[in-house]
């Protein structure tokens, strides 16, 4: 992790990024699309190192909603990794999931959530769950490290078992809030 990166990455001892990777394998996820987030940095590295997972880096998160639609047309299971600010970019595109009944699991690392330093992160962070739910997404929060793997497991299962958008919000309480040196 770049020590000058502005966002917080999970502690090296944290088990949950590897647990999410194991869940992607268990559920036979073949495509992972993302706009990077520090909270997902280790998971992204694991996916990039896996020849059975195609990783697509997006210019904006809504591309990922469309990509998941295309992947499912071709029989690939996909997930979208993003930061909470990216959820706002996805809103209209989530209609694809309802139009076609396409599974669309999203794993969201929260900013603007718990102890946030940056005022610019607050509006979208505070609205993330509400706007996802307004678009018919099943949203479950994970605010402790132990909660993350079972919540992600449920999010992936509910997407592919019930054909709709689902999301796990990984709370900033787990990841930690960057303080910009103002500890």
């Amino acid at each position: 992790m770049d020590p000058n990166a502005i966002d917080k990455a999970p502690d090296a001892a944290a088990a949950w990024p590897d647990q999410i990777y194991d869940l992607l394998k268990k559920h036979e996820i073949r495509q992972v699309c993302l706009v990077p987030d520090a909270g997902h940095s280790r998971l992204i590295k694991r996916c990039l190192a896996d020849n059975e997972i195609t990783v697509t880096t997006l210019t904006t998160e809504e591309e990922g909603i469309a990509l998941m639609q295309g992947a499912w047309l071709g029989g690939d299971k996909a997930v979208l990794l993003m930061q909470s600010s990216g959820v706002g970019n996805c809103i209209n595109m989530l209609s694809l999931s309802h139009i076609h009944r396409c599974p669309m699991p999203m794993l969201v690392t929260m900013r603007g959530d718990f102890g946030e330093f940056n005022p610019a992160q607050i509006p979208m962070g505070n609205a993330t769950q509400a706007v996802l739910e307004a678009m018919g997404t099943l949203v479950k929060r994970a605010d402790t490290p132990e909660d993350i793997a079972p919540t992600v497991d449920a999010t992936i299962r509910m997407a592919f078992n019930t054909f709709r958008p689902t999301a796990t919000l990984i709370g900033q309480r787990v990841i930690g809030a960057k303080t910009f040196g103002k500890d």
Binding site: A66, Q69, A71, G75
Partner: peptide, 16 residues
């Protein structure tokens, strides 16, 4: 619907 999606849906399908 999903204006702006067509090319990316094509990518997801082409990769799959």
């Amino acid at each position: 619907g999903g204006m702006g999606a067509a090319a990316m849906i094509g990518l997801g399908l082409a990769l799959a």
